[in-house]
Design a protein around this nucleic acid. Sequence first.
DNA 1: CTGAAAGCGCTTACAG
DNA 2: CTGAAAGCGCTTACAG
Lengths: 336, 336
Amino acid sequence: MSIGTVDRVLHNRGEVAEETRQKVLKIINEMDYHPNILASTLASKKAVVFSTLLPQPLSPEGYWNKPFIGVEKRISELQQYGVTLKPFTFNQAHPSSFTEQAEKVLELSPDGIVMAPFFSKEANRFVTKLREKKIPFIFIDSEIKNAGQLGYIGQDSFQSGQLAGKLLHFLTPLGQPIMVIHFAREMDNQNHLAQRERGFYTWYKNNDPSRQIITMEISDTESTDWEQNLKEKISRQQIAGIFVTNSKVYLAGRFIEKNGLHHLRLIGHDLLNENIGFLKRGVVDFLICQRPEEQGYNAINKLFQHVLMKNEVQNENYTSIDIITKENVDYYKEFK
Amino acid sequence: MSIGTVDRVLHNRGEVAEETRQKVLKIINEMDYHPNILASTLASKKAVVFSTLLPQPLSPEGYWNKPFIGVEKRISELQQYGVTLKPFTFNQAHPSSFTEQAEKVLELSPDGIVMAPFFSKEANRFVTKLREKKIPFIFIDSEIKNAGQLGYIGQDSFQSGQLAGKLLHFLTPLGQPIMVIHFAREMDNQNHLAQRERGFYTWYKNNDPSRQIITMEISDTESTDWEQNLKEKISRQQIAGIFVTNSKVYLAGRFIEKNGLHHLRLIGHDLLNENIGFLKRGVVDFLICQRPEEQGYNAINKLFQHVLMKNEVQNENYTSIDIITKENVDYYKEFK
DNA sequence: CTGAAAGCGCTTACAG
DNA sequence: CTGAAAGCGCTTACAG
């Protein structure tokens, strides 16, 4: 029984008589053998490549830069293990660009993939191929249930909506009407926003049922046509506070400053630089955040644990729902 | 110029002619050489041992279990690198026990230490010895400034007090008196509590100056003698909310439930199990947390980066100041 | 199907 | 002060 034979059974590479196999397995068990990963990766010298398929950030400050920062951080730490990254991005407005880039990923055939399944039809087609090729993949931000993913990392939008409900409740005097604003083009591909709204309404149903809530969808954020309309609504209905369901809360912030509506309480999502500005000036009271960098970092780490270390990984990982204010924002390194 | 010579200059082990040294250094620079840590630890086979010197947890659920969980987590990940842990704990009530255990640490002479400098006089004596022996050490929870530490990980108590101020402000109607309670034996060794109080008062001075605030120190938490006194104070002064400056907010929770004072808003610190219970029942409105597990994890990691990987590490690491409510507590894994 | 050899990038004695 | 050899725990051809 030589070292070569043992290696063959360890890695199920066949070419071993069943009898020898059993003997090896038995001894491995008895001595509680655990392979030394350092020695293994040192000797094997094989490069493993991971790919990401994520939305292009809408600006240099845009949200989707953040998960990618986490991805790069973990990749750089894994350099020693011969891990490299081939990133791909698609255009958030064009499902076809998703498919196009997905083709490129398939051609490359990496050892693992981190993706945001933004367009469900296109993403479904893609992961079917991945399953066939047995390439492990992780969903980030949103997920397709039971699609054979190695894992999902993202937030519970319904619950974060509930939290938004509670916060705005404490910020505004009892009995005064409040508002939910979606700054979004197509609500269908933005299931998170609908979930947050549902959570928000649910909280009030259970805790402050007499509260009047008005929802508004603003799809064209290029022009400022919506401002007049919103302004009238606010003064007519005596709105006391606004919840913006995504990172575009800075639009509401600009609106408030422009019109001097500083009595309005305002909460929203995500630590974009402009949002932080409004937070520090007291225009935004709370930002709800989800540690996007950490999501990217953990996604790559899951792949690493599975592909290199052969460890089991958790399938679902809801990220924490963080509350950020002027007082704690400077200590919220989303990243250590 | 042989591989042995190169190794000698790489590790400053002397016995190299200055001329050869310079030649090697030059080439290393030109080729941008970076050592392969995997190969290095595989070949060297030397065991490195880290020690912790932390307070004994006061109960199986006590606060000080948490940093230790993070310590163990990182240690287990570093097993492959031959890192082991020798933990030591001291009694929070007895400075002498700190000194006693510190002696043992010195005798063991580990490759790195994570410690809570609970008693400043005793801790100072200890770190003087560590400096002499050139053993790197990290402070956790609180720090001694400029003591030669490799780093500090903890929270900014003043700022977390400010945050507490803001939260209680929104929870209670304007103009109604509020209260700060310290459940602590000796305030001097508990500098964090004094800092939190200072931050709290500062917030009101700047944002709600007419607010009336009453501070109370309760040192004997074994008996319940304080309850009658507190009860009278609350009804006489018409107190609307309470801020407990540490993890013992559960004592205030019990008090509220026992006396049916459910109109009182209550905030405090740390995710002890009993505190979570009160949070979920709506007795505690907010808990402010500091990711103690992460503190332990990061402290060991700093040691690893410095001792094994020879990387530079940041000297100060304030941890984030997290706001936990009934709505987000289930997603606050202080640990991934 | 099995075994023996070379090599991954380093460290550690040891001979000169 | 310098160099050559053996070995860390694995993987990877390759000969039989």
